[in-house]
Simulated scan of single mutants.
Amino acid sequence: MILYFTADLMSTSRVQGPANAQGIALKVIGSQKGLLESIDEATTALIVDLNPPARDAISTIEQAKAKRPDLRVLVHGPHVQVDLLAQAKQAGADVLTNGQFHQQVGSILAQLAAE
Rank of each mutant, 00 (worst) to 15 (best):
L74N: 02
A91D: 12
Q111N: 10
T60M: 01
R14T: 11
G92W: 03
V73L: 07
P52E: 05
T97W: 04
G30D: 13
Q81F: 15
P18C: 13
L36E: 05
D49S: 09
P69D: 13
K65G: 14
I2Y: 10
T97M: 01
L3G: 09
F101K: 03
T12Q: 14
V75S: 08
G17P: 00
I58T: 11
G99L: 04
R68A: 15
A93L: 02
A114I: 04
A113C: 03
I61T: 02
E37D: 15
I24G: 07
G92R: 02
T6F: 11
Q32G: 02
Q87W: 10
V82K: 15
K67R: 06
F5S: 08
V75H: 07
I24H: 02
N51G: 10
H102R: 03
L26H: 02
Q100E: 09
L46K: 01
I39Y: 06
Q87A: 14
A25C: 00
T12C: 07
L3M: 09
S11Y: 11
D49I: 11
E62N: 07
M10P: 01
D83W: 13
L9G: 06
R55M: 11
G99E: 05
A19V: 13
G99W: 04
I39S: 07
A21E: 15
I58F: 03
L36G: 03
N51Y: 08
P53C: 04
T12S: 09
P69H: 06
L112P: 12
P69I: 08
Q87C: 13
L71W: 09
V80F: 15
Q100K: 09
S38P: 07
G34I: 11
T12P: 01
P52W: 04
P69K: 04
